[in-house]
């Protein structure tokens, strides 16, 4: 009895460690991956947005837009992540005259304003402050004004 207890001192330590490694380190993330891919494939793969059938980026990760006809994301070193995909509604609205100008007025200020206003996220009842996703806005622009943005489509 006494010896069997002694002997069991190492075994539980090693075996419990290994089993928890397999269960927590492999079984659990694989199980979540399976469920995620089955139920929410769009989110599980990084919310990739398509343009003409190709992935152009993730809605959650900022990408730079050099062309002044687009809404501009924040500079990378301004945010905490460096890939902040959003700008505040106020920021978006302030960019509108410049974008309209850059398109030679082909996209009107009022049209841009309504696009921004109808794509506001981040508020609920009295809570939160409104923001817009830059990639989302720009993809809407490309979609709504194919002639203006023909350089960026297939």
């Amino acid at each position: 009895m006494e010896t069997s207890k002694r002997k069991s001192n190492y075994r539980p330590i090693i075996v419990v460690s290994l089993i928890s490694l397999i269960v927590c380190g492999l079984f659990f993330p694989l199980l979540v991956t399976g469920i995620a891919q089955a139920l929410f494939p769009y989110q599980a793969n990084g919310e990739l947005r398509q343009l003409d059938g190709r992935n152009v980026g993730s809605e959650l990760i900022a990408q730079s837009f050099n062309s002044s006809e687009f809404f501009q994301p924040r500079l990378a070193n301004e945010s905490a992540s460096g890939v902040d995909p959003d700008i505040t509604q106020a920021d978006a609205l302030s960019q509108i005259p410049g974008i309209s100008n850059a398109t030679g007025g082909r996209v009107s200020v009022s049209a841009l304003t309504s696009i921004v206003d109808s794509n506001v996220e981040g508020t609920f009842w009295i809570f939160g402050s409104p923001y817009v996703d830059v990639l989302n806005l720009n993809l809407i622009l490309i979609n709504d004004y194919p002639s203006v943005y023909q350089n960026f489509t297939g």
Partner: peptide, 27 residues
């Protein structure tokens, strides 16, 4: 995941951005 957090084992996705640059999406 439903709220938008990725869960995949298929490696970082490389995309070509709207303006044609190449970029890794670190999923």
């Amino acid at each position: 995941v439903a709220l938008g957090v990725p869960q995949t084992l298929s490696g970082y996705t490389t995309v070509t951005t709207v303006e044609g640059a190449s970029r890794s999406i670190l999923v």
